[in-house]
Amino acid sequence: MSLLSIQNLSQSFDGKPILDGLTMDFWEGHIHAVVGPNGAGKSTLANTIMGLHGYTNYGGEIFFDGQSLRGVSVDARARMGITLAWQEPARFEGLSVLRFVGAGSKRKDPAHVKGLLEALGLEGERYLHRSVDRTLSGGERKRIELASILAMEPRLILMDEPDSGIDVAALDYIFTALSRLKNQGATVIMITHSRAVLEQADHAFLMCNGRLREKGEISKIGRYFIDRCIPCDHINEPDEEESIL
């Protein structure tokens, strides 16, 4: 069963097509990876599914649990169970980690939030009352973002490059979060450039130039990405004839 179904999705900015007739099905309870070169449209896809400001005017259809998301606001989508972990999460001066993580959580008590932080390798006592501001390192901020996602107990998580700015040691905690989400029955769509992250997925899609180039087992997609995309000298402008779909 697919939880999210995208049909002929297109999105353009200033007349330039960024997503170009994407059709994808995301099965419920699976971890899906989306890979592709810089500028392929991966973040645009995530932002459009979330319905962020500036991304609501799309062609085609997005169905979540059989229901069209057209005209559904970001917060209404979030209350349906969709959420987004940002590639570069925003900073909130003066807002404590406890308040931030608790904000979207059904349980706001410090003990619960502390447990989530600790699952991500952040010592609860040290972080609960710190502010989600510039004094947090990029890696700390990303893990706090994931804690706030776990707290929501969402059904569909869009993760935009969960590994960027994260060191190898902390990467294990990202994987812990992923398996926790999977155990909760959640569906994950993660955008990544990392082989290690890709390997956590059950299934992968390869995007190039706003289109779907390939989909299938992660080993196949990984190989294709390394063999064909990385050496590709006209990144994001594949030949029509070259398309393998």
């Binding site: 962020l52 400001h53 970001v74 940002w86 925003a90 904000a103 979207g104």
Partner: peptide
């Protein structure tokens, strides 16, 4: 700030 707002909306808070 729009990014702050969008982040919290994506966690299910109303505007």
């Amino acid at each position: 700030d729009s990014r702050q707002l969008q982040t919290l909306l994506s966690r299910g808070l109303t505007e």
